[in-house]
């Protein structure tokens, strides 16, 4: 299709020359080139998203319009608020730890001689490359109640066994740990690239002014990396907040509902319990929170951009 557009464009381009027409033609061609993208977004993303809103206003058997009945129903349930809280704790904690670990490890990698960096970077990025569902399986086996390899070490060190996925607190910890494990390398790579783009002279200048390591990080590194930190946090928040694979494979939401997040609960309610409208309602709650995060961070970036 691209070729057809190209050749017809070429044919027409050779004909007329009026500036106005060229502009008009240029925008037509541009529109045609973006058309597949537009169609895809409208048919497979925008329409189903709107349809989800419609579904969320139907009754369970999808025969009657109930307006905000499903929302009303959810708001009255303790489980729902528990899941709101968990989704937030889960996303916020995981993103913070990913960012911190990524930042710290990026500094270590940046500290060592350049020729060794490639090797370390290669090893440290592995968790990001393995498909999440598969690496989570190995965590599941590491956490197994009867065969936990961690507990084996603990017992040999004289420490008590931990029921990694069995107690609400530990299960939340485990889910966050796996999420950090998978996501931290992404931050590491981003920050490493950003560190390299900070001009060495700035550090030298700071050193001459007698800045401590902390001042150098606070006044040189962080401001220089501000954009990239914002961008990575935005991305990671989105991915973490909508996460399904890890919780699904690791705990399936248990024990009780202690590790359910919006995505897994929507799946449980909508598909497994056959209440499609309620499932759609639950999943809709992911949108506003993400939208807030996005506008907040995007605005921040453009503000910073205009200051510079």
């Amino acid at each position: 299709m691209a070729d057809i557009v190209a050749s017809s464009a070429a044919a027409r381009a050779s004909g007329r020359t009026s500036l106005h027409k060229v502009m008009q033609r240029k925008s037509t061609i541009a529109f045609l080139m973006a058309l597949p993208l537009i169609l895809m977004i409208f048919i497979l993303v925008a329409y189903p998203a709107g349809y989800a809103i419609w579904l969320s206003m139907l009754n369970k058997s999808m025969t009657k319009f109930v307006g905000f009945g499903n929302f009303d129903f959810l708001f009255k349930r303790a489980t729902f608020w528990e899941i709101v809280l968990q989704s937030c704790i889960f996303a916020i904690t995981a993103v913070i730890f990913k960012a911190i670990i990524g930042f710290v490890v990026a500094h270590f990698v940046n500290n060592i001689p350049t020729k060794g960096q490639r090797k370390w970077r290669g090893m440290l990025l592995v968790p990001w490359v393995i498909p999440a569902a598969m690496s989570t399986l190995s965590w599941l086996w590491l956490f197994d109640p009867s065969y936990s390899a961690f507990n084996w070490i603990f017992v040999h060190l004289g420490l008590p066994k931990i029921s990694w996925l069995g107690e609400a607190g530990w299960a939340r910890f485990s889910v966050i740990l796996v999420n950090v494990w998978i996501g931290a390398p992404f931050f590491l790579i981003m920050y490493l690239a950003a560190l390299k783009s900070v001009p060495e002279q700035l550090y030298e200048a700071a050193s001459i002014d007698g800045a401590t390591w902390w001042q150098r990080i606070w006044f040189v590194t962080l401001p220089m990396m501000r954009n990239i930190i914002a961008i990575t946090i935005l991305f990671s928040t989105i991915v973490t907040f909508a996460n399904f694979d890890i919780v699904r494979v690791l705990t399936a939401g248990g024990p009780l509902t202690a590790t359910h997040v919006f995505a897994t609960w929507a799946f449980k309610v909508g598909i497994e319990s056959g209440d499609i409208p309620l499932g759609a309602t639950v999943s809709l709650f992911m949108v506003p929170i993400l939208a807030v995060a996005a506008t907040f961070i995007l605005r921040d970036i453009s503000k910073r951009g205009s200051e510079v």
């Binding site: 197994d144 109640p145 009867s146 065969y147 990694w164 996925l165 069995g166 107690e167 399936a252 024990p255």
Partner: peptide, 21 residues
């Protein structure tokens, strides 16, 4: 019961038996 029974699935009890515990 073991402390983590709240998180057990259909396979957990089997593993608990097979592991001899």
């Amino acid at each position: 019961l073991p402390p983590d029974v709240a998180a057990w699935d259909d396979a957990s009890n089997n593993k608990f038996l097979v592991s001899g515990q």
